[in-house]
Write a protein that binds this DNA or RNA. Sequence first.
DNA 1: ATATACTTGTTGGATGCTCATTCAAAATAT
DNA 2: ATATTTTGAATGAGCATCCAACAAGTATAT
Lengths: 226, 226
Amino acid sequence: MRALCGVGEAGVTAIPDPGGRARKAPREMRRQQLIEATIDCLSRRGYADTTMADIADRAGLSRGIVNFHFESKDNLLIATLQFMADEYATHWMGAYDRAGPAAAARLQALVAADFDRRVCTRRKLAAWFAFWGEAKSRPTYQALCGARDKVYQEALSGLVEALKQEAGYGYDAPSLALSLCSMLEGLWFRLMMGDGLTRDGAHAAARAWLGVAFPRHFAPDGARVT
Amino acid sequence: MRALCGVGEAGVTAIPDPGGRARKAPREMRRQQLIEATIDCLSRRGYADTTMADIADRAGLSRGIVNFHFESKDNLLIATLQFMADEYATHWMGAYDRAGPAAAARLQALVAADFDRRVCTRRKLAAWFAFWGEAKSRPTYQALCGARDKVYQEALSGLVEALKQEAGYGYDAPSLALSLCSMLEGLWFRLMMGDGLTRDGAHAAARAWLGVAFPRHFAPDGARVT
DNA sequence: ATATACTTGTTGGATGCTCATTCAAAATAT
DNA sequence: ATATTTTGAATGAGCATCCAACAAGTATAT
C-alpha cells in the first residue's frame, strides 16, 4: 500500500507512482498518493513550511492537482490527519483482538503495537507532531486527535483495572492508566526528536515500566509471567 | 517580571505595559515584553498563524518594532524559545537544590516542579508544543530543546539509580529513568490538549507512578515514606 | 469498427492576498 | 544638538486558489 519508507534525503525523487504519471489513476489512489506526499512534506519541512507546491512536486504531479482532488489545502491536511488517525486505530485494535482474552497479554500487545514499524516511523511521528503543534489553535485537529486518544485510553484503563483486580495491586487505577498512556506518548516524542533513541530502546523502556507497575504479571524486562 | 498570567480571552487587551506605551522603555524590558507577547500569540494562534502584526498588536506597539529590537521574526522566535528553556532550567534546578540531600526528596521536588504554576500554564505548554511541532525541521529549535532535556534527564537518571542502590529495586535504571521523563512530557502534552485534565490531576498521576516504582520510598499516593 | 459527444483528470500560468521587511520621518531622551 | 526609540506606510516576495485549455478515457450513434 504505502510505497515510500526508507525516505532518503534525495531531492526530486517522487513517490513511486501508483499508476505512474499516467492520467486517470483511480480517484482513491491519487488521493492516497497526495496524502502520502503530505505526510512526507510535513515530516521534512514542518507544518509552517509545507506548501501546496511542495506537496505536488513530491507527488510528481502538477500544481493545480490538489485543488481538484481536495478542495483546499485545509481539506488535504484534515484528510491526512484523518488517515493517520484511522490507520493508528485500526492497528492497535487489531493487536488487541489478536492478543487473546488475558488482560496482561492484551496490555502487552497494545504497548508493542505502539512501537511497531507500521505506525512508528520517524516520518509519521514527525507528521503527528506537526499536527499536534497546531492542534490547540485548530478545533478540527483537536477533535481528530482527541478521538484518537479517547477510545485508546479507555482500553488501557480497563486493562489496568483488570490487572489490579487479578493481583490485588495497591495503585489507583485511573492515575496509573493516565501515567501509562502519557509515557507512551512521551516516548513517541523522544523518538521523533532523535537523540539516538531507537524504537527498540523506547519499547524496552515501556516494558520496564510494565515490569515495575505489574510485578506479578511482568518480569523486570517486560516479559510475561504466567 | 512576567505581567500576563490569567490570560483571559479578551480581544485587544494588550499586556499591562512595563513602562506603558511610553517611548524609551529600557531595552531589556521591551525585549521581554515582546517575548511575552510572542508566547501569547503562539499559544492562541499556533506557530503557523502567528504573524509579526499579531505580536506587535498584542504588545500594544507598532508594526515595525520587532525588527528594531530583534532583527527578524526568526530571531524573535529563537529568543522566545531560549527564554522559555532558561526559565524552565532555572526553575527545576532551584527545586533540586532546595530539596536537601536525599535522593527521594530530590526526585519528588523535580516532579513537583514540573507541575508548578510558574512553568506549567496552558499558555506556556501551548507555546512549547508550537516549537516542538517545528523542531524536527529546524536544527536551531532542536538544539535548544535538546539542551533543555539533556541535563534534566541526566539528573533524573542519577536519582533513579540512587534509589535503586538504596533499596535494591530490581528495575533497569536507565530504562526506568527514560520512562519517567517520557511520562512527564506526556502529561504536559495531555494538559495542553485540554480534555479536562487539571494540573493537579496530572501531578497526582505522576505521584502515583512514584509510589508504584519506588514503593520503599513513596506511598501509593506519592507521599514520601521515611 | 469508427466517429462523435460527453465526462473525468491534469496541467501550468494568472490573480490577488497576506505577510516580513525596510525606511524616512517623528517623538523622546541625553 | 545628537543619539536612541517608535511609528506607519511602502515594497516586494511567496503563496493558495482559480481557471481556461488540453488529454484521456467512456458511452452512444453510425
